[in-house]
């Protein structure tokens, strides 16, 4: 049954991906200024014929519809083409950048869970008290300021206060785990503050829901201690919807780290995408947007499956 559900979900993802790739293709080709023009900039000394040669060389002389079909055909076989600007394979560019973005998104989610869940629970248990209000107020602050603004404040604060703290100079985790974590910590917190507020809100609401359930009331009536009720009975059920939010946020962050990557000079996929759009490097833009789309869809399906695993009451059908 479950397998059939997963297959169904995967099949329904196909039209979404095709629509997505069509969106990108049309958009990037409609925007004025093409890859060759931008490559040559305002110091362009080439003649019309020389320009034409370049278009032919990169297959850009064909109609856009044909270019799309060729791209789609190659995509199905796992070939995302090569960058027009650097000649590098798009798949290898993604393979290099995706781990950085994923790590950033993942660490942000971890941070936001560590902060968000306990405070959300406390807030729910102490509903409508001063503690509840102050936690909610503080939480909302994280949602209320532009992320790049918080990021720059942190950069300036840390570089001025902790003079020896390494903020820049990303290295992969497997090479130097400690330095990697040090460099990733501040950006992950910056991004995580925003998500923490949402996780906190979700934990609070869902905890409140659970606490108002019949079986909790029965437990109270039986004289089970409040602490035990919350830890043993309520917590597990309250955390289920939080998993969904965390999953959805993870997917969202994979496409939403552009500004933080730029701010903290992290070599991630978001910055590559922004750069590729600015340069109209068509294969790179198409490749990354498609990849992000596939990742988001896969994560959503995974979350749904996880959801049914931890909560047997939920029937995927």
């Amino acid at each position: 049954m479950k397998l059939a559900y997963i297959i169904g979900r995967l099949i329904s993802a196909i039209p979404t991906i095709i629509i997505l790739t069509l969106f990108v293709f049309i958009a990037i080709h409609m925007v004025p200024g093409d890859v060759i023009d931008i490559m040559l900039g305002t110091q362009n000394f080439l003649s019309e014929e020389q320009m034409q040669e370049l278009y032919v060389k990169y297959g850009l002389d064909k109609p856009v519809a044909v270019q799309y079909l060729v791209w789609l055909k190659n995509m199905v076989t796992g070939d995302l083409g090569t960058s027009i600007r650097t000649g590098e394979k798009v798949t290898s560019m993604i393979a290099q950048k995706f781990p950085v973005t994923f790590e950033l998104a993942f660490l942000s989610i971890i941070f936001s869970i560590i902060i968000g869940i306990p405070f959300g629970i406390i807030s729910a248990v102490k509903k409508n008290t001063k503690t509840d209000y102050s936690i909610r107020f503080l939480g909302l602050i994280g949602l209320s300021a532009p992320v790049f603004w918080i990021g720059s404040l942190l950069i300036v604060f840390i570089s001025g206060t902790f003079v020896n703290y390494t903020l820049f100079g990303f290295v992969p985790f497997i090479q130097e785990p400690l330095k990697n974590l040090q460099v990733m910590l501040v950006p992950a917190i910056t991004l995580g503050l925003m998500v923490a507020a949402q996780i906190m809100r979700m934990s609070r609401n869902s905890m409140l829901d659970v606490l108002s359930q019949e079986y909790i009331k029965v437990a109270y009536a039986k004289g089970v201690s409040k602490r035990k009720i919350i830890m043993k009975h309520a917590l597990r059920n309250a955390l289920i919807p939080v998993v969904t939010i965390a999953g959805i946020q993870l997917g969202y962050l994979i496409g939403g780290t552009i500004i933080i990557e730029k701010m903290f000079a992290l070599p991630g996929m978001g910055r590559l995408l922004l750069q590729a759009v600015n340069q109209r490097d068509y294969p790179v833009v198409q490749g990354i947007v498609t990849f992000i789309g596939v990742m988001i869809i896969l994560i959503n399906i995974l979350v749904d499956i996880l959801y049914s695993v931890i909560d047997p009451r939920i029937d995927l059908n």
């Binding site: 329904s12 993802a13 039209p15 979404t16 991906i17 629509i19 997505l20 969106f23 990108v24 958009a27 990037i28 409609m30 925007v31 004025p32 496409g255 939403g256 552009i258 500004i259 978001g270 995408l273 922004l274 759009v277 947007v289 992000i292 789309g293 988001i296 869809i297």
Partner: peptide, 26 residues
């Protein structure tokens, strides 16, 4: 519902800043 939601899914999967960038650039 199915058709509409596939479009909505595709919009969701599009990095929002890049989407806005396209529209403003266009």
């Amino acid at each position: 519902d199915n058709i509409i939601m596939r479009f909505i899914d595709a919009m969701f999967a599009f990095p929002s800043i890049i989407l806005a960038l396209f529209i403003i650039a266009l």
